[in-house]
């Protein structure tokens, strides 16, 4: 009976003071993105390369008739590139109408994390740029790095000079 109560409790949490995150893995680290920022998750697909672009922009894909740019999060985080495999997925993030694909090693779960387990102030050192991190959370005894999607996808517009 105690177990049932625990589950009920969890459901309550979910509807009142929890936040939902899509969690995924890069290397051995677990990252999370607010589900509100995730448009959908698709399997790896054919990417059309684009010339003269930033190293972490892998190219563009066809998302049901829309041409969407795709970045490799490993490269964005200045990590080693890794061969794509059957677990590799593209998370399509939607921030204020701008769609962008993010390649990650694999998606693990959708997490309900109670707000009190999310630390807004970050005193945390990791390999990636502090601007990309929004907060740190603990879920299922795991540390989850919650990412600031806006900062990750906000890419400076490339100059198209009038003359070389």
């Amino acid at each position: 009976m105690a177990k049932t109560a625990a589950i009920e409790n969890k459901i309550d949490d979910a509807s009142f003071s929890c936040k939902k995150f899509v969690s995924f893995l890069i290397e051995d680290e677990t990252y999370g993105i607010s589900v509100l920022k995730v448009h959908e998750i698709i399997a790896m697909t054919e990417i059309t390369e684009v010339p003269k672009t930033l190293d972490y922009i892998k190219g563009v894909i066809n998302l049901r008739g829309k041409v969407v740019p795709v970045i490799d999060l490993r490269l964005r985080f200045k990590m080693e590139e890794r061969q794509y495999d059957c677990y590799t997925v593209i998370i399509i993030a939607d921030t204020g109408g701008r769609m962008i694909g993010m390649i990650v090693d694999s998606v693990s779960d959708v997490l309900n994390i109670p707000e009190e387990k999310i630390q807004q102030t970050v005193h945390f050192s990791s390999g990636i740029e502090p601007d990309f991190i929004e907060s740190i959370a603990y879920a299922d005894n795991n540390l989850v790095i919650i990412l600031n999607v806006e900062n990750i996808v906000s890419i400076e517009e490339l100059d198209k000079p009038g003359n070389p």
Binding site: T48, V50, T53, I61, N62, L158
Partner: peptide, 21 residues
């Protein structure tokens, strides 16, 4: 979008019959 490439030789994209860009 402007940030995708700085090549002036590329003016846009299109989706082909097989679904690739």
């Amino acid at each position: 979008d402007n940030y995708i490439t700085k090549s002036r030789a590329i003016s846009g994209a299109s989706i082909l019959g097989d679904g690739t860009v």
